[in-house]
């Protein structure tokens, strides 16, 4: 395991003891190091590995926004370092394959920045989870592999994620990180499949005006349905 944990346990007041306890639980840092943080005194917040995101503003789009010319009126707040880790993590979740590009190639990291910088309650709540989670991931990568998550190999990245990506099999004590992964995946997948590339990949072919009557299912779709109904012992409605 990595050395130099003294300097690397960089946790600000916000992430606090619960994150330390979680780090302890995976037991990749020396006990002596963490114990001194678990006393009554909380040390002054040191710099974070990924820097501190800018304060989110209170600029909302309001209750009468222009629906035809939509704009995001608030500023992005994530640091370059946070975006770098987010970008790597997006691509582990949605990598390039034969059908569509990786998430980072279609702007998903920027969308995550848009989301966590938004002024609304759900997004504020996600912000806490996402930014702390990215910091944790980077800390873990440096501790375990001596490398930034962004520079770690796919097997190393997978090793970290497998601790938190499967709730039923997650490493005990990592409930916050499991929630982080779930929320980050939600944002990544939602953002990716709403892009043109993602929408094409998944096979959505609507949003086009049809002249005349709605044609209903294609012959191929109906044939498939007929097969399904046959398996169920049901007949296709007349």
């Amino acid at each position: 395991m990595s050395s130099g944990s003294d300097n690397r346990i960089r946790v600000d007041r916000r992430t606090t003891i619960k994150w330390l306890a979680a780090t302890m639980a995976v037991a990749h840092t020396g006990c002596a190091t963490t114990e001194k943080y678990l006393g009554d005194e909380i040390p002054p917040a040191p710099d974070k590995l990924l820097g501190s995101a800018g304060a989110p503003g209170n600029v909302r789009y309001g209750t009468d926004a222009d629906l035809v010319n939509p704009v995001v009126p608030w500023s992005r707040t994530m640091t370059e370092a946070q975006l770098r880790i987010a970008s790597s993590l997006c691509d582990v979740i949605v990598p390039e394959d034969g059908r569509s590009p990786a998430a980072s190639a279609v702007g998903v990291p920027d969308f995550i920045d848009e989301w966590v910088s938004a002024p609304y309650p759900q997004q504020r709540s996600d912000r806490e989870i996402i930014l702390a989670g990215l910091e944790w991931l980077e800390q873990q990568s440096q501790d375990r592999f001596g490398s930034s998550f962004a520079a770690a190999g796919v097997p190393q990245q997978a090793q970290l994620l497998d601790d938190i990506a499967y709730p039923a099999d997650a490493v005990p004590g990592l409930a916050e990180q499991v929630e982080f992964f779930e929320r980050f995946r939600y944002l990544t997948v939602g953002a990716f499949y709403t892009t043109e590339a993602g929408t094409n990949d998944i096979g959505y072919i609507g949003n086009v005006a049809i002249k005349g009557e709605y044609p209903g299912p294609s012959d191929e779709a109906l044939a498939h349905l007929a097969g399904v109904l046959e398996q169920l012992g049901l007949s296709l409605p007349a």
Binding site: V92, I93, V94, P95, D97, R99, S100, A158, L161, A165, Y166, E182, R185, Y186, L187, T188, V189, G190, A191, Y193, T194, G198, T199, D201, I202, G203, Y204, G206, N207
Partner: peptide, 28 residues
């Protein structure tokens, strides 16, 4: 069921679980 994707489509990922190329296959 094949409505235009919105953020809600990510619930499929919650249903399928995991990540990576397997997840992309599961989404389809």
């Amino acid at each position: 069921g094949r409505a235009e994707p919105g953020m809600g489509i990510a619930h499929i990922a919650g249903f399928a679980g995991g990540y990576g190329r397997k997840l992309k296959e599961d989404m389809r």
